[in-house]
Write a protein that binds this DNA or RNA. Structure first.
Lengths: 254, 254
DNA sequence: TAGTGGTCTAGACCACTTC
DNA sequence: AAGTGGTCTAGACCACTAA
């Protein structure tokens, strides 16, 4: 029965996966686990820390170590960008906040508008000099109380100056969202390139997204092009990985 | 100067990001750090464990705590599936192993062929009953010594029986790879649907992919369809997140 | 306010790897 | 063989929160 922290972690993991501790339930108290396995409580704590890093549990003071529920993942397909949605002039349309699956409510989404110097990725995407000033529209999107992702859009100043896109009023952009406004200015989005990768969050990201330990983030970068191939928007999103899956359907190229 | 493990972790992280400890270099010895910050060595160890979980460092015995290099990410676009590559009858073509960016060498790739019962995702994708037997072609793909991803393809038995696809000989499938064989059997791949998400690895996955702590995996599931809409292959890949980025370009739907 | 997890100190011993 | 990180024990005290 005496064993190392890995053994304790393995035993707990197996019990969780066997359904002995279903999602939302709590593990036995740490000192009970310690007694059962005949180890010091610090060894149990290390085992729990291991499971936490794996994303299986989150210890909560005074409540115990709770088994994390796997929330249903939202599947994001390209249809979320469909023109019909913004061309109908729907007030409050936003493909980005659609990602959270619920309609907009005041306080849902914070946003800041600012002129910032373009970093390398932005500069390359928008075809401006690195360090040149671009408009940044940054928002934190929530599903109820829970933040799900941050998203920052970048525009060339001459494209969006004096449009609702750079109006710092909270809430959806009137006129069919950002894409609606671009369309009405003669820059209708036609094509996109999205790039996805994943890593562990920075402490800053973990804080703003309220991420439990052991939850990675997925980074989505997209370029939006007009029909003549000009990139009119670059966006970068940081998503809580457990909440999203992306789906793409395509013809196999020749 | 006396401080908690978070402060120590913050200081080390800041120093790493400021370039004081470049990728590949090692941090000072743990007891030196402890002395500098006037804390117990166990506090330092906890701080280092934190940075490890963030994917920033990997402690190696006798060598010290080394700052992880960020290997260049391989960008995977849909052109890796281009028909011209397998239709030319290229020996040894494999879009999946292209993902590692180097030509095939013996010992690079292990593979196993087996008949397995279909899990729910496989069954749904291939339109068979859950639990029905399907062919599984599973491989571990390496870039040199380093495993980069596992990939398992699933086929309906009647589609691939007695073809090179289910021949357990190591190495690339003769006849233009799996897609080439399917094409020659009148099931030419035309369209794909790929779905991507991310999570922390299971201990098993961490072992087979030799993942350092703090490295997430990305799960890619794809369905391959013929022109008449029949799904002839379902595949599931588990990728070391730090090595891959996926890119998709698409028209914005109406 | 009691009970749970969180942090820190202290010290012994182990394990691996480079020299 | 020496030096680095890894694990375990032991005990004190802190911090948050549900009752």
């Amino acid at each position: 029965m005496a064993s190392g922290y890995r053994d304790v972690a393995d035993a707990l993991r197996a019990a969780i996966e066997a359904g002995k501790y279903p999602p939302g339930s709590t593990l036995p108290k740490q000192d009970e686990i310690a007694a059962r396995h005949e180890v010091n409580i610090h060894t149990v704590r290390k085992a729990v820390a291991q499971l936490e890093a794996e994303g299986l549990v989150t210890p909560i003071r005074r409540r115990g170590t709770v088994v994390r529920a796997r929330p249903p993942m939202r599947r994001l397909g390209t249809e979320r960008y469909a023109k019909s949605r913004w061309k109908a002039g729907i007030i409050g349309f936003s493909a980005d906040r659609e990602a959270s699956g619920v309609p907009w409510k005041p306080g849902d989404q914070t946003q800041t508008i600012a002129k910032v110097p373009a970093d390398d990725a932005i500069a390359k995407a928008l075809d401006v000099e690195p360090g040149a000033e671009v408009y940044e529209r940054a928002r934190l999107v929530k599903d109820g109380d829970q933040p799900t992702h941050t998203l920052a859009s970048y525009y060339r100043p001459e494209d969006v100056e004096d449009t609702p896109i750079v109006d710092p009023t909270p809430g959806p952009i009137p006129g069919g969202g950002g894409f609606g406004v671009l369309t009405s200015k003669g820059m209708e989005p036609e094509r996109m390139t999205e790039t996805i990768h994943s890593r562990m969050p920075t402490p800053e990201e973990a804080e703003t997204l309220e991420l439990p330990a052991g939850e990675p983030v997925m980074i989505l970068e997209r370029q939006t092009f007009t029909a003549d191939g000009r990139c009119v928007e670059f966006a970068r999103g940081v998503h809580a990985a457990s909440r999203f899956a992306w789906t793409y359907t395509f013809q196999i190229p020749e």
